[in-house]
C-alpha cells in the first residue's frame, strides 16, 4: 500500500513540474511537440528511476559530506547511457532535444529526489517514487506539449487536426512556453482556491 502511495503521489499531489516547480528548463524548452515531450519524459524517467534505485542501494556506503558529488556521478552515468542510446537509435529525437539531454544531469527533479527521497528510503520505495515522479513529469510534459503543439502548429502528434485553424506561431516559440506555463499554473491555483 505504501509503495502504491509513493507511486501515485508524483502524479498530481506532488507533481514535480507543476507543484514542486522542478526541472522546468527542459520542461519548457522541449515541449514544442508531443513527440519531443514524450521523448524527454521517457529519458528523464529512465534516469530518475535508475539513479533513485542505485542511490538508495548504496546510500549507506556514501560519506554524508561528499554525497552530492557521488549522486551526481551516478546520475551523470545514466544520463550518458541515455545520450548514447538515443544517439544510436533515434538520432532525430536526439537532434530535436539538443543540449537538453546532457542537461538532465542538472535537472532538479533527479537530484532533488535523490537527496530528498532515495537517500532516506529503501530500494523498493525509491523505485516506486522514481516511477511515480517520472510518470508525473511525463504527464505534465504531455499536457503542455499537447497544448503548445495544438495552438502553435495546429497539430496533434504531428497530424493536422482542424484544417482552417490558423496556429499562433508564438506558442511554439520561447515566449509561448512561458505564457502557457504561466496560465496553467494560474489555472491550477484558481482551482485550488475554489476548493
Amino acid at each position: 500500500m505504501k509503495s502504491l502511495n509513493e507511486l501515485i503521489k508524483g502524479l498530481i499531489k506532488e507533481n514535480p513540474a507543476f507543484v514542486l516547480m522542478l526541472g522546468l528548463c527542459p520542461f519548457l524548452a522541449v515541449s514544442v511537440s508531443i513527440a519531443n515531450g514524450i521523448g524527454m519524459g521517457v529519458a528523464a524517467t529512465f534516469v530518475l528511476v535508475c539513479s533513485n534505485v542505485i542511490i538508495s542501494a548504496i546510500k549507506n556506503f556514501i560519506p554524508a559530506r561528499i554525497r552530492i558529488p557521488c549522486y551526481i556521478v551516478v546520475i551523470a552515468t545514466f544520463v550518458t547511457i541515455t545520450e548514447l542510446v538515443m544517439k544510436a537509435y533515434s538520432p532525430a529525437l536526439n537532434r530535436a532535444l539538443g543540449i537538453y539531454v546532457p542537461l538532465i544531469v542538472v535537472n532538479c527533479i533527479v537530484l532533488g529526489r535523490a537527496e530528498a527521497f532515495a537517500s532516506k528510503n529503501n530500494v523498493r520505495d525509491s523505485l516506486f517514487d522514481g516511477i511515480g515522479m517520472g510518470i508525473g513529469f511525463t504527464l505534465a510534459l504531455l499536457l503542455i506539449s499537447g497544448i503548445r503543439e495544438f495552438l502553435g502548429a495546429g497539430k496533434l502528434f504531428s497530424l493536422t487536426v482542424i484544417k482552417s485553424f490558423e496556429p499562433a506561431l508564438v506558442i511554439a516559440m520561447p515566449p509561448g512556453a512561458l505564457l502557457v506555463i504561466a496560465l496553467l499554473l494560474g489555472f491550477f491555483n484558481l482551482i485550488k482556491g475554489r476548493k
Binding site: P175, G186, F187, N189, G193
Partner: peptide, 23 residues
C-alpha cells in the same frame, strides 16, 4: 495582482513578455 496569478505565474508572464520584446 489577481490572487491565482501571484508570484510564479505572473513571474512567467513577465518573462514571456520580456522574451517577446527581445524577439
Amino acid at each position: 495582482v489577481p490572487k491565482p496569478l501571484k508570484d510564479f505565474p505572473l513571474g512567467f508572464i513577465i518573462a514571456s513578455i520580456m522574451s517577446l520584446a527581445f524577439m
